[in-house]
């Protein structure tokens, strides 16, 4: 009781200055600390309690999972997993505002079996940014169907041994950014069509494509492909402005341009091109040249060169370079900035 009296006096004399901060700043402050620390602030006062229960972005990273495991008095592994799951359940159930971000970033996949209800839950509470990291998985995790039709979702990042099985015509209606790492993209039919009407950024790294996936993304501007068999994925390069690819993708893409030059349109709007581990070979150079020549608006080129020259083919390379000189000059005409590492 004395505390209540004291509180009145002190608010008159000098108000607790941090409580005067607007909600958006308090939320931002809470989001700059580990979620287990943010949770503790809920017991400071009623205002803080409300801030905590309306926190828009929830991050459950490996640090949080370590914390939950350490706080499990039972040293059994399953007890630790159960404890972490229980804490996340409690946090979601006590949450009273929209959940704009849900980021689950584990170093392992032992929590995979708990994820579905959380993803479904946040998909019904205004989720915009969803991140799932479950690396080193022994079995494949499949994203629940509900998230694919979620209309609030704008950013999806999945780094996991995951099956991505968007059945035909299902689309992420408002997805702006999609990043898939280590993911198996499976088609239900022989050729599936995935329409992503709002997609601007697509990153596909170390993904396997089973079946043929036809991507339709009219607004795509940034494309990154690395270690992925794009043969089974139609290269949607027509509208992109920023392209980043690895040596293998470059060769595949170049081959596709050779084979189906009439069907494919070169990325005419391309502004920046980044090639990781460009090989020093005729195939690589000619592939890069096709892209360069087709992109009349390109102004920035970023190459990281893998220095491994096949000695037996150097003459071939030099003769190629001497014949392609005029093409090279033409290709480099518009470029303002070149970075070679």
């Amino acid at each position: 009781m004395t505390r209540l009296v004291r509180s009145k006096v002190s608010t008159d004399a000098r108000k607790s200055f941090i409580c005067d901060l607007p909600t958006e700043i308090l939320h931002k402050i809470l989001e700059h600390m580990p979620i287990q620390d943010a949770a503790i602030t809920s017991t400071l006062s009623k205002r803080w309690n409300q801030m905590w229960s309306t926190l828009p972005h929830l991050v459950f990273d490996s640090q949080f999972l370590d914390f939950a495991f350490n706080y499990s008095f039972d040293s059994e592994f399953d007890a630790g997993v159960g404890n972490a799951a229980r804490i996340i359940n409690t946090i979601l159930l006590q949450h009273t505002g929209p959940i704009l971000g849900f980021h689950f970033m584990s170093n392992d996949d032992y929590m995979a079996k708990y994820l579905d209800p959380w993803i479904i839950f946040v998909s019904k509470h205004g989720i915009q940014k969803l991140t799932i990291h479950l690396p080193n998985g022994s079995c494949l995790y499949e994203l629940p169907y509900g998230i694919m039709t979620c209309s609030s979702l704008t950013h999806l990042e999945v780094l996991a041994s995951t099956v991505f099985r968007p059945s035909d015509c299902v689309k992420f209606p408002n997805l702006v950014s999609l990043e898939l790492v280590d993911t198996q993209i499976e088609c239900k039919l022989i050729e599936d069509t995935l329409i992503l009407p709002m997609l601007e950024t697509l990153k596909l790294i170390s993904c396997r494509v089973l079946g043929r996936m036809r991507l339709v993304a009219p607004k795509l501007e940034n494309l990154t492909i690395d270690n992925i068999d794009i043969e089974n994925l139609n290269p949607i390069v027509t509208s992109i402005k920023h392209l980043s690819l690895d040596r293998l993708s470059l060769e595949m893409l170049a081959e596709l341009f050779h084979v189906a030059a009439d069907r494919l349109v070169l990325p005419q709007n391309l502004q920046t091109l980044k090639i990781c581990a460009l090989g020093i070979s005729v195939e690589q150079f000619s592939g890069a040249l096709i892209l360069l020549r087709g992109s009349s608006n390109l102004y920035e080129l970023d190459l990281s060169v893998a220095v491994e020259v096949d000695e037996s083919r150097t003459t071939e390379l030099f003769s190629y370079l001497s014949t392609a000189e005029s093409h090279l000059n033409e290709a480099f005409r518009m470029i303002q900035k070149v970075r070679v590492r």
Partner: peptide, 8 residues
């Protein structure tokens, strides 16, 4: 530190 009085 923040001069927060508990109102619980």
């Amino acid at each position: 530190i923040f001069r927060i009085e508990s109102d619980f």
